[in-house]
Amino acid sequence: MALRLCQNLRHPLVPPTNFSMKATRTRKLSVMNYTLDPKDSRKLVLEVKEKLEKEYHSLPVGKNGRDDEDMILWFLKDRKFYVEDAVSKLTKAIKWRQEFKVSELSEELVKNVAQTGKAYVHDFLDVNDRPVLIVVASKHFPAMQDPAENEKLCVLMIEKALGKLPAGKEEILGIFDLRGFGNLNLDICVVSLAPVAGIILSNESNATL
């Protein structure tokens, strides 16, 4: 079982809402890719940036902030380059990051669940130069572990993987180790987080490190 993040997810953790099913050898659920001339996309990025500065001045700036041009471009792609839609979703993402305190997350903060080893980022990239996030399902016990810490660990691991993206790369590979998985490991809340990260789910038995 593999999970792949798509569309330059260096920053946001907000669900794209428009999906398309593609028939391939392995069934995939993917977000449509939209492209635009670099000059035109640059103009739209600046338009969003100016709009955010005027209408949402209180939002933070810098990385993952309202003036982060890489993040602005990601949301424009996600919203098919509709400025208003991109602004709406982007502001929600920035506010969510503030409320969740993503920038303050650390393994020390979630050490009780982190030390179980149920989720970690591999030391090396895969053969396609993607960071690899590994989840060991048999070590996840939702009835005995703090759900708030589990959620923080999930976000922390995705952020950590995205932080290892090489220049020009836009995907991470997630591998779920289901060996020994049983009823006690089942967690509907975690399953429901899949679209929150804007991800592709696929049965990729040939995922290779």
Rank of each mutant, 00 (worst) to 15 (best):
L5P: 05
L184G: 15
K77W: 00
I188C: 04
P12Y: 09
A2D: 12
G168R: 09
T208E: 14
L201M: 11
G117I: 01
D85E: 09
D126G: 03
F19Q: 12
D37Y: 00
M21V: 10
Q115D: 14
D126P: 02
F181C: 07
N185V: 04
V83Y: 08
D126Q: 00
S41V: 09
E47S: 15
L5R: 04
I172G: 08
S192E: 12
I200C: 15
S103N: 02
D40C: 05
V110F: 04
L186F: 08
F176K: 04
G65C: 11
L173K: 01
K111F: 05
L193M: 11
A207E: 08
E107Q: 06
A143K: 12
L44M: 14
L44R: 08
K160G: 08
K160L: 07
F141T: 06
R10E: 12
S20H: 04
L209K: 00
Y34L: 14
R10N: 10
D40P: 02
A207P: 06
P38D: 12
V87I: 09
K95F: 01
L165T: 03
S192M: 11
A93D: 13
F100D: 12
L133K: 10
A161R: 07
Q7K: 13
K63G: 07
L46F: 03
R4C: 09
E53W: 01
R25H: 13
D129H: 03
L29T: 05
S20R: 00
K22G: 14
V191S: 11
K111R: 11
P12L: 11
N128W: 02
K39P: 02
R179T: 07
A93K: 00
L178H: 07
K101V: 01
E171P: 01
A148P: 02
D37S: 11
L184R: 08
N112F: 01
